[in-house]
Design a protein around this nucleic acid. Structure first.
Lengths: 341, 341
DNA sequence: TAAGTTTGATAAAACGTTTTACTTAATGAT
DNA sequence: ATCATTAAGTAAAACGTTTTATCAAACTTA
């Protein structure tokens, strides 16, 4: 049964009607009698009619496609997001077209330009510094945009992300309550607000416990470092600061590399070094004695983002430009941060 | 600088030419003088002209979009694939539209039907039993399809995947060479040829070592089992067969659950139980003492698949229906399978 | 010079829809 | 019986391209 790809013109011919009538019936618009409607509907169903998306898109200017621009699809975090987003979008007849930027501004610009060639009705984007203009341009062209996992400070573009500041604060607070005194921070030297918020949470938690921040205990991994180098660097950092009794990693990428370092240095978790990492994943749950993590509410984040976007695309005329959702995270406590001594 | 979305008609007006002339120049088709060409090209460039994809699609029947249908984007394996595929496709001006099936046949059918509404020029699909008709239908409609990570036995549809049989054979062979005598198998009760091929590799490796297969040492995890149940079941299986000194897991999902079981049973790897799992990932490289794995050549698989597809879509008239690529894997040896005793 | 050929440019049709404006027939009101 | 209203259906334009067929002018050839 090969699809003959029939058009409304064909249906019109088969039913002795006009294409207008067919179109009206199929879209429930004009007023057409029950009998004719039924006849048309029957023929359409029997032949498995599907409208030509291109034609519809050309005529209406609506593609029913959403652009999802993420840093990299490889990660668990974005993978799970993509799943939820896809699922929800499909319910409303939207497809997802996915692009990754690999944290490269030019790639980000290209991707957005590419998507904006009328192909896409709305966007979910993980923001990077340098993309402000491009995103604002989209909005100026009436395309709904929702940022995810980050935001542009000072700009009124809706976003939804985990509450990075409080998550980090709580994580470090937890360490301090457990009796650890010298908590170090390992973060990446990327110009991302998420990371800055997390770092701020770390600092403020120390302050709340009346501990003076020791800048030496904060390590920023250079962005362009490869995995080999990174591990070397983190190892060196750990070795040079024996007084540290706990470490907070601001991303799971850093966290897993940290584990590798600690393993190679033959340190014991948590006796020699307690560990907390952002982003929960399988490694952290399995790795003995279990690594305490900040679990991002991926489902909620993704769901909120796509809901927000869909409501905009469905013609909701509310101004969502000021919607800024910071969703609380959950601290998953495991063996890596049990009470000291 | 808001995109005014100008059309070739606008360009024609601006340059005192006709839309035909503009179209010809922009596509390098007809014969138009140098001067006029330059004028048109200049105006187009200055205003950032981009053709309306919908219009092009409607007229030419070509969407420049590739459909990627996978089981789930969540996993590392498919995430990496997606990345490579996206990258290569982009070089030729194609975008990727991604859909997941979650191993649900109906969802698979729906997804393919949805994509086939003229939106998509070609497909990369992870096959599932029950989708044969739908895929053949696509091919009958002249849409190029490449299967990935699986195949349909008996059907001439091009595919590319890891050499499951030999990979499994080698893994088990490695265990036997290392001195393990009672090698068990944990696989999933899914009707997927990949898994069957892996199981066959296991059996034949035993045979090659003149070991009679003990059906009791083969465990098939029921498909619909949730994580809790699965772990319970695997634990029970391990406990009931104390004579086993090694286990081969046919997927990384099973492998990580297996680790959890072994941990809970307080068995030591590899002294009490040696372990090999299909699919390498971070958990296996980090988990002490390191888990030996079959590393799939994700890059090569993805690259071959997209190359194959692109060459077809670019009008290569070779018949690729018989292209069947089984790419060798690499056995990553780690502490979980060191020489016995 | 007449006839053929090449060069440069264009008009118009087509792709498959949606939608506006219109027609015709039937119904209702007075 | 007349006019207004409503119901049911349709013609035709438009969306932005690509491509075929055509045309006029310029250039060759004999």
């Amino acid at each position: 049964m090969i699809n003959k790809k029939l058009s409304i013109k064909d249906i019109a011919k088969l039913t002795n009607t006009s294409i207008t009538t067919v179109s009206f019936v199929l879209n429930g618009k004009g007023r057409i009698s029950k009998e004719i409607s039924k006849k048309i509907l029957d023929v359409a169903a029997k032949n498995g009619y599907e409208p030509n998306r291109m034609a519809v898109g050309l005529r209406t200017g609506v593609s029913k496609v959403i652009g999802l621009v993420v840093e990299t699809i490889g990660g668990v975090f974005f993978g799970e997001m993509a799943k939820v987003i896809e699922e929800e979008a499909e319910k409303e007849g939207y497809r997802i077209i996915y692009c990754s930027t690999n944290n490269n501004i030019q790639k980000g610009k290209d991707v957005i330009k590419m998507l904006s060639q009328q192909l896409v009705d709305g966007y979910i984007v993980t923001p990077m510094k340098g993309l402000e203009k491009d995103i604002q341009n989209l909005i100026a062209n009436e395309k709904p945009v929702v940022l995810i996992d980050g935001y542009f400070p000072g700009l009124d573009i809706p976003y939804v992300l985990v509450d990075n500041y409080n998550s980090a604060f709580n994580a470090v607070d937890h360490l301090l309550h457990a009796g650890y005194k010298n908590v170090g921070l390992v973060t990446a030297d990327l110009d991302l607000v998420q990371l800055q918020d997390r770092a701020q949470g770390y600092k403020d938690a120390l302050k709340a416990h009346h501990i003076k921040e020791d800048k030496k205990l904060v390590f920023k991994l250079p962005f362009q470092a490869g995995k080999e180098e990174s591990i070397k660097a983190i190892k060196a950092f750990i070795e040079q600061h024996k007084q540290m009794d706990a470490l907070f990693f601001t991303t799971n990428y850093l966290g897993t590399m940290g584990l590798e370092c600690i393993q190679e240095l033959q340190l014991s978790i948590p006796n020699d070094l307690a560990v907390v990492s952002f982003d929960d994943n399988e490694v952290f749950s399995l790795y003995p004695p279990g690594i305490t993590t900040v679990r991002q509410p991926t489902y909620e984040i993704a769901k909120s983002a796509i809901d927000l976007l869909l409501s905009q695309m469905n013609g909701d005329k509310d101004d969502i430009s000021k919607v800024k959702l910071r969703i609380p995270s959950q601290l998953i406590q495991r063996g890596s941060t049990i009470l000291k001594n």
